[in-house]
Each structure stands twice: as C-alpha cells, then as structure tokens.
C-alpha cells in the first residue's frame, strides 16, 4: 500500500492545484490500519457531496471508502441513482455505465483485471441502489453470484427509488404508500440476503450504517472474502430521509429504530464455512500484527 499512484512528480508539483496537493498530503492511501476514524481528516474520503443534506448515503459512502483495505487498487462500479451523484467526488476509479447492469460490468472488469494483473490484487466493488440491485438488475446481480464472480456487491437499501422521486421498489416494506404503489405496496420486502446465500454468496451482511465500526468490519470481511473465495453481499440501510419525510438530522434515529429488536434491520450475517475460516485466519493475523507492533513500541520506549 502506498501513495505512489497519486503522488505528483516534482516537476509538476508546483502547478498542481492546492486541492490536489492537499489530497496527496492527507491521503490515507498507504496507511495499513486505515478505517472510518480517518473521516474528516482525509480529503479523498469525500469532502463534499451532492446528495440531500443529511442523507445517510453520504455517511455510508464515507465509511465504505475509509474502510477499503486496498483503495489504491480498488475499482468501483456504480449504477444510476442517488449513489451516482457521489462518485464524481471520490478518489478511486469508478465506472458508471447504465442502470442495473452493474454486476455485469463488474464481472467483465474483475476477470480482465485478474488476467492483466495476475500478481497484484485488484479489488472490484459494486455499489448501487436497491432499485438497481434488486429490481432492474436482479438477473445480473444473481447471475454473477451463480458464476461465483470474485467481487463484492453493496446495496444501498433506501427502500425506494429515490433518484426518480420515491417510487415503489422491491426492497420497500409491504404496505408502504409510495408513487406507483398508490394503495400501498402489496408484497413483502424482497429477502435478498437469503437469496444471496442460496445463490452462492460466501459472506452476507445486512445492517444499518448507524455504527461505523460495524460497517467497517463488514466491508473488510466482504472484500477479503470476495478476493480469496467468491461473491459477497452487503445490504446497508441508508434511509431516504427526503422521501420518508424526515429532517436532515433524523437519519440516524431512523436507522437506530429500524435495528432495534424485532426491527427489519437487526444486523444479520451469513458466512460460509470457507469464509469463516478465512475471516478467523485474518483476525488471528491482525491480532498478531498488533501485538508485535505493541511489543516493538514498548521495547523502543524501554530502550529509550
């Protein structure tokens, strides 16, 4: 991990805009234990965004970008929707092509990169709305899981089509009155986590983004498992405060309420045996690394 890719050559440094200078100076690229705590001090983790004020998608985006284990070799694939308004601001390459075809794009991309860089890890991450993932793109979402494509799919579940003005989506709750569901949605919220498990995903987590530590852990698990084993899926509740009539400060409360016992976003994880083994090994390695680092530090202090 390093900042090498974004660092300017000396000759060009003085003509680069201060914004870019700052991006390089504060980048967390190259920092081994980067995580959600870097938000606020690092420019590449979305300094600005063009979502509605207080939209939980914006904080979800930041947690995800901050938690990527390998940002300098990570490529995002997005889709049309509110998420597509954020990608122009982030310091990882990202592809927007069409609405709903994100897992098809990611399949071709991941395979080509794996062939072109056999000795390097190139993580591919799909990030799309619930309409894109579950409705118009369900076919491609699931087929990529059947084929065991090695990338992570993240769905920002706001339970409706936000970008087009709040229409019914498959992940919407039953009974919710929305545009195009004038007398209330008449079928249940699609159970995509369960479908993902049956379709061959090795790590699945459904949670809200109220607790950054949880999001960070789930994302890291999802990416490492996708890298080594096969497809993974994260479904994050990012309520559309605009369409459910909440104020900009109320997103967090909405998420917290939905994850209370009996709520529809109580955190759940499905982990295949193979994935669990990997997660355990990685956790053990991480523990050992931290222990060694601590020991080295104490030794240094003692000798000093």
């Amino acid at each position: 991990m390093s900042k090498e890719k974004i660092t300017m050559t000396e000759g060009l440094a003085d003509i680069m805009p201060p914004e870019y200078q700052e991006l390089v100076a504060t980048a967390t690229y190259g920092k081994e234990d980067r995580g959600w705590k870097d938000i606020g001090s690092s420019k590449e983790l979305i300094e600005q965004h063009s979502l509605c004020a207080g939209c939980p998608e914006s904080i979800a985006f930041r947690y995800i970008l901050a938690s990527l284990p390998n940002p300098e070799d990570t490529i995002f694939v997005g889709s049309t929707g509110c998420t597509s308004l954020v990608f122009p601001h982030v310091a990882v390459q990202n592809i927007h092509s069409l609405f709903g075809n994100q897992n098809a794009i990611a399949s071709g991309l991941k395979r080509a990169l794996a062939r072109r860089y056999p000795d390097k890890v190139k993580d591919v991450v799909v990030l799309a709305g619930d309409g894109a993932t579950v409705d118009i793109g369900l076919d491609m979402t699931m087929q990529s899981w059947f084929r065991q494509e090695k990338f992570t799919t993240i769905c920002f579940d706001n339970e409706l089509y936000a970008n087009t003005g709040g229409q019914e989506s498959g992940l919407m709750q039953k009974g919710f009155v929305a545009k195009m569901a004038p007398s209330g949605k008449n079928f249940d919220k699609v159970r995509l986590p369960e479908i993902a498990r049956e379709a061959g995903c090795h790590y699945i987590a459904m949670l809200t983004v109220s607790k950054p530590g949880r999001v960070e852990k789930a994302l890291k698990n999802a990416i490492m498992v996708a890298r080594e084993i096969g497809p993974t899926y994260l479904q994050l509740y990012t309520p559309c405060i605009l369409e459910i009539g909440k104020q900009s400060m109320e997103g967090l409360d909405e998420m917290k309420e939905s994850e209370e016992i009996g709520g529809r976003f109580v955190m759940k994880e499905y982990i295949s045996d193979q994935a669990q083994e990997l997660i355990d090994t990685l956790a053990a390695e991480e523990k050992a690394r931290k222990k060694a680092a601590k020991a080295a530090k104490t030794k240094k202090t003692v000798s000093a």
């Binding site: 399949s107 071709g108 991309l109 991941k110 990169l113």
Partner: peptide
C-alpha cells in the same frame, strides 16, 4: 464465458474493455 442475456453480455464486454482488454 456465456453471459445470461445479450444485455448482460454487452455489459460484461464493457467491463472487460474498461479493464483494458
């Protein structure tokens, strides 16, 4: 590989081309 439909296939082709193939 075999894609799941021509719509998906052309997306998969795009992904591979975005990736430099």
């Amino acid at each position: 590989f075999r894609g799941e439909s021509e719509f998906a296939v052309m997306g998969q082709c795009a992904g591979a081309a975005f990736g430099g193939h």
